[in-house]
């Protein structure tokens, strides 16, 4: 991990004040993390997430919420400490494969997924003569086990997207153009008034409400899944979805009527079948590429002197 911005004075003072306590709490001595190197790690983590105007108290509170022992273990592994690596394998190797199996749902794919991440965690590539480990990017905001699941899921999604595109291209090449699906005739665009009214109603939604709607209606997730994502009860999501659906319909109708539609006309426009709507495929694809894929990237290696 390499700091992208200088460590502010409040952060530095908070780190210095808590260093002894956190160093002992993380068991850093056993895994070869010196105080100096751990101080630098804490400063970088705090600087990454805290705003520049943070106070000493905020920095202190933030540092106390970190998973200190897991942060120390991950950073010690990234620094190449063997005892830390053995400890990591003992604790997480089996969980890594189990999580991969749960995500991929197929044994060979799961093993492939886990092995690739395992290589990244160990750091098979080098930069400036040093092993580059993905564990160096772990900051202790969540649990190390949860972080491993997340990076597994990121890798799985990246692979899926790559495979999907590749297969599409292969199929096109093998089948030839005669088997290519006929291009649908361009459908008339939806009434611009309907789109604007819908966009206005969606924009007025709370972020979480919009996320719930997208997860339920767009992703097809169950109420239970959404509830787990947000850490609430399933019934809460059920009520929220019902309420949001009713509210959206009313708001869109009101927006359409404000734009000069009669109520009957607005209702007919709202109930128009999806076949009448132009599904903007290119735009959807653009959404996929608008944001770069979850990365191979950003393992920012911090060269630390004397670490390990």
């Amino acid at each position: 991990m390499r700091a992208t911005k200088p460590i502010s004075a409040p952060v530095q003072s908070a780190v210095s004040g808590l260093l002894a306590e956190l160093h002992a709490k993380g068991g850093c001595e056993k895994i070869g993390l010196t105080r100096e190197s751990f101080e630098a790690i804490l400063g970088e983590v705090a600087t990454k997430y805290l705003p520049a105007s943070t106070t000493h108290a905020d920095a202190r509170t933030f540092l106390l919420t970190l998973r200190i022992d897991e942060l120390a273990l991950a950073q010690a592994c990234a620094a190449g400490n063997n005892s830390a690596w053995e400890l990591f394998l003992t604790r997480y190797r089996e969980k890594l494969y189990q999580s991969a199996l749960r995500i991929a749902r197929e044994d060979s794919a799961a093993r492939d997924l886990a092995d690739s991440l395992y290589a990244e965690l160990y750091g098979t590539t080098t930069r400036n003569g040093e092993r580059v480990s993905k564990l160096a990017s772990f900051t202790g905001r969540g649990s190390l086990e949860g972080w491993l699941r997340t990076v597994l899921a990121q890798e799985f999604v990246n692979r899926y997207r790559r495979t999907k595109r590749l297969v599409s291209l292969d199929e096109e090449g093998e089948d030839g153009s005669q088997f290519a699906a006929p291009q649908p005739e361009p459908l008339p665009s939806a009434d611009s008034r309907l789109e604007s009214a819908t966009d206005a109603a969606l924009a007025a939604l709370d972020r979480e409400d919009r996320m719930v709607l997208a997860a339920y209606y767009l992703d097809g997730r169950t109420l239970a899944e959404i509830a787990r994502m947000l850490g609430v009860h399933e019934s809460t999501i059920s009520r929220k979805v019902d309420k949001l659906a009713n509210s959206l319909r009313k708001k869109i109708l009101a927006g359409l009527m404000q734009q000069g539609m009669a109520r009957r006309q607005a209702e007919e426009a709202l109930e128009v079948d999806v076949r009448d709507l132009q599904v903007d495929i290119r735009r959807s694809l653009a959404q996929d590429s608008a944001v770069r894929a979850f990365s191979k990237k950003e393992v920012q290696v911090r060269s630390r002197e004397g670490s390990g």
Partner: peptide, 9 residues
């Protein structure tokens, strides 16, 4: 929800 909502999401 109306299908336009799904689309605009």
């Amino acid at each position: 929800v109306p299908k336009i909502v799904v689309k605009r999401l």
